[in-house]
Design a protein around this nucleic acid. Sequence first.
DNA 1: CTGAAAGCGCTTACAG
DNA 2: CTGAAAGCGCTTACAG
Lengths: 337, 337
Amino acid sequence: MKPATLRDVAEAANVSTTAVSRVLHGGGASVRVSEERAAQIREAAARLNYRVNAVARNLRKSRTNTIGVLFENLKGLGDGPLYTTCLLDGVSSVLFQQGYRLSLLAEIDHSDLMGSLGDGQLDGVIWCKLARDADSASILRDMPIPIVAINASEPNDDAEALFVNCDNVGGIHLAIDHLIGLGHHRIAFLSEAEESDTPDRISRRDAYVSQMLLHGLEPVELECPWNLQGAVAEILERKSTAVVCWTERLAGHLLDSLREQLISVPQQLSVIGFDSTRYCETTSPRLTAVRQPIREMAAFATETLLGMIRREDCGFQSRIFPCQLDVRASTAAPEVQ
Amino acid sequence: MKPATLRDVAEAANVSTTAVSRVLHGGGASVRVSEERAAQIREAAARLNYRVNAVARNLRKSRTNTIGVLFENLKGLGDGPLYTTCLLDGVSSVLFQQGYRLSLLAEIDHSDLMGSLGDGQLDGVIWCKLARDADSASILRDMPIPIVAINASEPNDDAEALFVNCDNVGGIHLAIDHLIGLGHHRIAFLSEAEESDTPDRISRRDAYVSQMLLHGLEPVELECPWNLQGAVAEILERKSTAVVCWTERLAGHLLDSLREQLISVPQQLSVIGFDSTRYCETTSPRLTAVRQPIREMAAFATETLLGMIRREDCGFQSRIFPCQLDVRASTAAPEVQ
DNA sequence: CTGAAAGCGCTTACAG
DNA sequence: CTGAAAGCGCTTACAG
């Protein structure tokens, strides 16, 4: 049985579709309907079990009240790191409260990104971990809807989109200064080879290198494959006493490996991660980590995006959120050698 | 600058919109277009930077290629439990691969659920933790699109929707039998007062009670508020040697509380959770838990839903997935008193 | 091989 | 206070 349309209601109530639309959906301020007729219309709508067809309305209004969220890497959502989850939480809290829908977008081949994002089904896009290559630059330029990027590459001057980032540089400085304050000198930086293009990874690593050099210390960059055994061996061989991992997830894996090899944390090795979600409370030992305010960043990005959609063109600005250091149990002064 | 429409392309190429639609989107098999004209059309489309408007197409076809996912409780997504995240992972893996979109739906007041789900923007719905009250029953009956429920109340005979559940009863039996096998007799069941209506909680608790009685043991049901201090006190007072928690998240909180009060697990108390995601690997000690195959269940539910949408009416059936017990470090034989 | 035309269900100036 | 009509951008029988 096909759902009733506006026309069905109009016929049942013996009025025009104009009147029905006015009464049921409240648009078209130029139209008046008497209370008597309005009652008839409401009665007919209820009797026919009428429900507006939002697709038709969207087409007519060129508005969908739907925001897309695009991750460069959505696979393995349930695999541990709470970053994605926190971000979704922040986005959805703002979105739902304002009556928008949230469409989760797959990692799509970039060639068709324009087709997927610009097909009229989305009023705006939140784009996470956007890599800044030529493709994405042209997409940002040609996209007919507003885009806000979270934790993308550092924006350049003629930014085509708005950027919401955490202060990767400041965060890494906090981590290194903490370790140096504890007495460490041999501090390594660990990241996955698979993630070498991720903007966050690049800026965190660069910040690590420059901060180490600033302190006159030798940077030791380690890139590991999924299997961490080799990385642990190299850490020991290099006689590092502390490791900064580019994410909390990687730090968690590292803790697992260290435990298997009976290397005690933080006595023999201090470990720091990045993000500091609740995940850090559940590792053993609990993980010292740089905290970025993911939920707040996501909520801010979403508010901004909604403002852009409503054309409140009142000077939206890219913004960098400061990080903090949450000191937990995985860092301590190095053992005296 | 407004995006180019099909009509713009047709005018630019001096052909009908029919021809353009046929060439660019491949529908309308009854129509033929010569290769020469097709080339002109493609050229014009590229030149005008034409992109199909999916909203218009959706209206015309009464299909959106979008699936809604509805959680009874989406708040606190990032708050620890990986259940929601795993489920999204399972749903999205199937959906994206088949070219569907995923719309995340807010917890909405039930009065407007029909309006939100049946507004034409969704081809189908995955409904999680659906409580079986009168409202939801009528919604299931009247909804114009197919629905698959995950971990909802046990389906009754005239099921209006398809149900995909884990075997809560069997899972709880595994947990209790494991504890009894270790020598426990005083086994408590812990759940949150706030969640008393959740279908899973009800069936797990019922299974606990009946299994305890079957073994001639006394069931001890504890309902705690967010603060677990009181629960811990009651566990000790009752001299329980083991606790089955209705979720892994609650078990994780319990472990935290126990650690604060210097009660050692599993020596003084054994703890079991339910779900067994990666979260259980990150608690201290690692959490023994009943595992339900969330990803697989979600993937199955999604495949089924897509089949129903495509009207492959070939006997879809509700299905119950068996659980397993993942024994980790939080359970052991009770200390001799 | 090709196009004119109807229609998906709604909203909104516009005219009475 | 009320309605006829155009149009959002597309697809698809149908007729030539």
